[in-house]
């Protein structure tokens, strides 16, 4: 296979794949920011809520309740106010998929 054709083929593959990768990574990256307290991929080592495998709807509701003040917290009520519904959804989707 000629070098140029490999490059062109890869470039075309790239055109197809780039958007998907970024979309899939959005939830991963957003969730990673939470991982500093809640553990890598939500696998807490203790003392913080483990979010790996957390049912999505339950997590969305919990964060929304922190945000509204319905659920009292020491810090999560302040952090939750920094996220939109769509962002919370993306984070919860990612964590729900973690084993």
């Amino acid at each position: 296979m000629k070098r140029t054709s490999v490059v062109v083929a890869l470039a075309l593959l790239g055109l197809a794949g780039g958007a998907f990768a970024n979309e899939a990574n959005y939830g991963r990256n957003m969730a990673a920011a939470c991982g500093s307290c809640h553990g890598t991929n939500g696998k807490s080592v203790g003392g913080m809520e483990a979010l790996a495998g957390y049912p999505k709807d339950k997590l969305v509701k919990a964060v929304q309740d922190f945000r509204s003040g319905a659920k009292p917290a020491t810090v999560m009520h302040q952090l939750a106010k920094g996220y939109t519904d769509a962002q919370i959804e993306a984070i919860a989707t990612y964590y729900a998929a973690q084993k």
């Binding site: 490059v7 062109v8 890869l10 470039a11 075309l12 593959l13 790239g14 055109l15 197809a16 794949g17 780039g18 958007a19 998907f20 990768a21 970024n22 899939a24 990574n25 991963r28």
Partner: peptide, 19 residues
């Protein structure tokens, strides 16, 4: 690949699907 993307008028570059 950047040149290819520019030619096609699409801003996205290579990557594998699925994250």
């Amino acid at each position: 690949s950047a040149a290819g993307a520019a030619a096609a008028g699409i801003g996205s570059l290579a990557g594998c699907a699925g994250g």
